[in-house]
């Protein structure tokens, strides 16, 4: 079994799942808890007046299987420290196993030394989670799946793809005219895989970047004339890429443009950009809370992925395979 900790469970008395949550995404924790038929464990995460994070644990975790749900969003560094302190606290309180459940992995894009002396921050985060005492990490759609290799502990990288496919099949439909478009070369594989599963055409937009978060020129490869284009990406941050891609598609005779993105960071003036763009609808998963943005942007729609995480937690706890979730949405 993985790392030996799971094998010890056969000799120990059965333990149960304890769900903790930081302040980044309590709704997700509540949804997962509801699905698992549990209560979120009692704990208060505050800040002292000197801005240090203060974690108070309100119930015993001795010999329990602890899952801490914290997404990389909002005040990322504060949420990261909350998560790390929670992990250490549970570990020090003799939890049998601590799993960090991070629907959106923070700093995932800083994953390589792309310039001289650039930090590989994703590796730093991996190290921090390990020294804090995490035994296992569950996340979704890592920007680069190689980040799994930064860890010496098991990392389950779940896919939003099955949920995305379900959304396209049930909500967008109009299948024959649909074309899946990747807004950049890096996402080609992800988009091609979705096109294959839906048995529809695929197109690619190649972009030339001058600086990070700034796109200069876009070239479309593939035919989108009079089609319904679905842009597919793993992350929508400032949305500059998506909006430019949508414009390129419309310029090339596309009928309608949808954008399906796993992690809707939507920072800066993303919402204003989306509102003024030809994108008909932007669909993101709830890996990052965005309900408060819906009032400002009617184009925003949600794919719920709490079920996938709940099922992954249940399967991990029971020692069952998680790979089922790579292809199917749990009922």
């Amino acid at each position: 079994m993985l790392n030996g900790y799971a094998s010890s469970s056969s000799t120990n008395p059965p333990n149960s799942i304890k769900l903790f949550t930081g302040n980044s995404h309590p709704e997700m924790a509540a949804a997962i808890a509801r699905r698992l038929g549990l209560q979120v464990a009692k704990c208060v995460v505050l800040k002292y007046s000197n801005q240090e994070t203060c974690v108070t644990i309100g119930e015993s975790v001795r010999d329990e299987d602890v899952y801490i749900i914290q997404s990389g969003c909002g005040e990322i560094n504060d949420h990261l420290m909350e998560l790390l302190i929670l992990i250490t606290a549970c570990k020090n309180a003799s939890a049998r196993r601590v799993t960090a459940v991070m629907p959106c992995f923070p700093y995932a894009r800083q994953d390589k030394k792309d310039k001289s002396r650039a930090p590989i921050t994703a590796k730093v985060i991996a190290n921090m989670l390990t020294v804090a005492g995490a035994n296992h990490v569950i996340t979704m759609d890592l920007h680069a799946s190689q980040i799994q290799g930064f860890f010496n502990i098991p990392v389950d990288n779940l896919y939003a793809e099955p949920s995305t496919l379900k959304y396209i099949r049930t909500k967008i439909m109009r299948m024959p005219s649909v074309v899946i478009v990747s807004p950049d070369a890096g996402g080609a594989k992800r988009a091609a895989s979705i096109a294959d599963k839906l048995n529809v055409d695929f197109a690619l937009i190649h972009k030339e970047r001058k600086k990070a978060n700034e796109v200069s020129k876009m070239v479309l490869v593939g035919d989108v004339t009079d089609r319904v284009a679905i842009l597919v990406d793993d992350m929508a941050d400032t949305c500059g890429t998506l909006v430019l891609a949508a414009k390129t598609l419309i310029d090339n005779g596309c009928q309608e443009v949808y954008a399906l993105v796993t992690h809707g960071v939507l920072s800066g003036d993303a919402i204003a950009k989306i509102n003024h763009s030809p994108i008909k609808s932007l669909i993101v998963t709830n890996s990052i809370p965005h309900e408060h943005l819906k009032a400002q942007c009617a184009k925003l729609d949600t794919i719920d992925i709490s079920g996938t995480f709940a099922e992954a937690i249940r399967r991990t706890h029971n020692g069952e395979s998680v790979s089922f979730l790579f292809h199917y949405v749990p009922a």
Binding site: K42, E52, T53, C54, T56, I57, G58, I85, T88, A132
Partner: peptide, 20 residues
């Protein structure tokens, strides 16, 4: 947190910060 028998305790982040 509601009243429970469990005594609430506050986590100390000292060792964690050193390890980090």
């Amino acid at each position: 947190m509601g009243s429970t028998q469990y005594k609430h305790w506050t986590a100390r982040a000292g060792t964690l910060v050193c390890n980090m």
